[in-house]
Write a protein that binds this DNA or RNA. Structure first.
Lengths: 354, 354
DNA sequence: CTGAAAGCGCTAACAC
DNA sequence: GTGTTAGCGCTTTCAG
């Protein structure tokens, strides 16, 4: 590890000059020629700054704390973390991730992150929920991810459920479906309202009437299958927008029992299906991915913007798009983009991905 | 943040004494009464050491680097990371996680971890593979996780595929199955050999002959289903040990088409099924979980043992067991424990979980 | 037994 | 423009 001291002595200047140059604060303070030489030797020696030393001095670590309680239990957490890490990395930050089991050790984990000097926090849940922000986080730069602050006081990044449903439903309409079912979830998830509304509005905008008999909200297993089966009997759908893969599967099962072919007699769009489900069990299923990667990415950008208000983040206006799904033999494009909504917009306006 | 200086002045001693006491190096160096008072004020002030300052001085950060390229793409990564984090946390360490896309940025990410001063590395793959250890990691404390060093020079933590298969097959035997099929994977995975051997030996130990016609290795989709179907036609199995959930599903499908009931006519054990698969689509499936959590846990313990050879890790001999699966209505116990094998044993002997 | 002092690598006033 | 100096919080000789 080569140090500033080394560069200083080799170049014949002082450490402070080196520091100025290497932090790009030399404009009008250090003679260009000197600056050039400093940079040259720094480069020649492969100098990398020591983040620890800097942090000890500045009180800033360029580390973001990522707090979640479900990192291990859902396959989606990875997407969020990946997005957050990518953004953080581009911004010169690192991510320090902790997971809490329930709420018991949450305070401890947060305390540990503070000891390590994180500059701010991301507080993530998997699948949008109302959360109470822990007291220990209230005075810190904080962004909620895939979660909603019950008090509505903290910034959060959430999927745009309305637009997810609107787009999905519109795809089904465009594909020529006449009777599009909505297979929702009976649990009181935040996503429910937005999705149902998106479904409704897409129909409306296409001049279709909303038909109650095409809608059902179900839980799991037998009763769920029964409910979807009833819907098939009463409404004879030729398209279905499904809350998730379990619900999509009920449609597959019902179709199979009636001799209907998915992709021909019934088109199905499902949200956020497990890869294995789509690949192995559900051919012809069109998948709408929730923007996990994007949520993580934006959350990190937003958080850094809170930590460094003066920093120019123009280059980060839009996150990288999610990798496309593996090619499936689907009747409609496999990828439908989503929108992210911020409570407090990064730049004073909401923006959408396209 | 209260500092040692503060404690020193309040107690009327010097910082060095405080440091001695708070690092438990006071034995025979500091008068017990003084030590007591130091500890008392430290406690009263809620003192927490500043890891940055310590690290700057000692050159040790108590941070472990976790390098993986598939954190986001598999639902299992979380388990490994969770285990590693739990162990690290108990040992007073943190985990700094980076993910690499392919190999392009791997060197960069590793360099970044080094700059942040990690004390050692875990290099993880998802689903045991032969890997070439990057040069940049060769001179560091290193443990491979769910991966095998092609040269056999570095410690690694891997699932004990033999015992997974042995146990699973034995369960089927104990459940009364007479003709137990092995539905393997056609890809050249390290797991294949061990599992097939475990299957074979379990049969042997039960006095059964190994029957080639009960074995098939398949890829995906149509051809796979066809192969499993052929196996059903020629060998009429009443039990099946399946490499993973996709393969388990082919058995379900074949059984369904023949009017056979899973859990009565055919018992099925599958490895590492996606939760949603088991819950929604595959009732009566017995799942053998790969020990992801344990692998992460052990890897972290092993790594710390390399970093601090003198540290007493007796309390960490056995990792916590994986959380039990949610209760399923299965014909056999849902949880089958696994064994971990280390290339270089932590304490000179291999151990098994029970 | 305890304290003074040096220094890890870096930044930021403040002189010159 | 550049160097000197002080100090972030901690550990670790080395005197006393």
């Amino acid at each position: 590890m080569t140090t500033m001291k080394e560069i200083a002595s080799r170049t014949g200047v002082s450490v402070s000059t080196v520091s100025l140059v290497l932090n790009n604060r030399d404009e009008g303070r250090v003679k260009p020629e000197i600056a050039r030489r400093v940079r040259a030797t720094a480069h020649a020696l492969g100098y990398k700054s020591n983040p620890l030393a800097r942090s000890l001095r500045t009180g800033k670590t360029r580390i973001l704390g990522f707090v979640s309680e479900e990192v291990a239990t859902t396959p989606y957490a990875g997407g969020i973390i990946l997005g957050a890490q990518d953004a953080a990395s581009s911004l010169g930050y690192m991510l320090l991730t902790v997971n809490t089991d329930g709420t018991s050790n949450e305070a401890d984990e947060i305390a540990t992150l503070k000891r390590y000097g994180v500059d701010g926090f991301m507080y993530a849940k998997m699948s949008n929920r109302y959360v109470d922000v822990p007291d220990s986080l209230r005075d810190w730069p904080l962004v909620l991810v895939d979660a909603t602050d019950r008090e509505g006081r903290f910034a959060s990044i959430e999927p745009d459920e309305f637009r997810i449903a609107y787009d999905a439903t519109k795809r089904l309409i465009d594909a020529g479906c006449e009777r599009i079912a909505y297979i929702g979830c009976l649990e009181p998830l935040i996503a429910q309202a937005g999705r149902l509304e998106g479904y409704r509005r897409a129909l409306e905008d296409a001049g279709r009437a909303f038909d109650e008999s095409l809608v059902t909200n179900v839980l799991n297993n037998g009763p769920a299958l029964k409910a979807v089966s009833d819907l098939f009997d009463r409404a004879n759908p030729d398209g279905a927008f499904c809350f998730n893969d379990a619900r999509a599967w009920y449609v597959y099962e019902c179709a199979a029992r009636r001799g209907l072919t998915i992709g021909r007699d019934v088109s199905v769009v499902g949200v956020d299906n497990h890869r294995v489900f789509a690949e192995t069990l559900a051919p012809k299923l069109t998948t709408v991915e929730l923007p996990h990667y994007e949520m993580g990415y934006w959350a990190a950008v937003k958080l850094v913007s809170m930590i460094e208000p003066d920093r120019d983040l123009a280059a980060f206006e839009r996150p990288k798009t999610t990798a496309p799904l593996p090619a499936l033999d689907v009747p409609m494009p496999a990828k439908i983009h989503c929108t992210l909504v911020e409570k407090e917009s990064v730049r004073g306006e909401n923006r959408s991905l396209d």
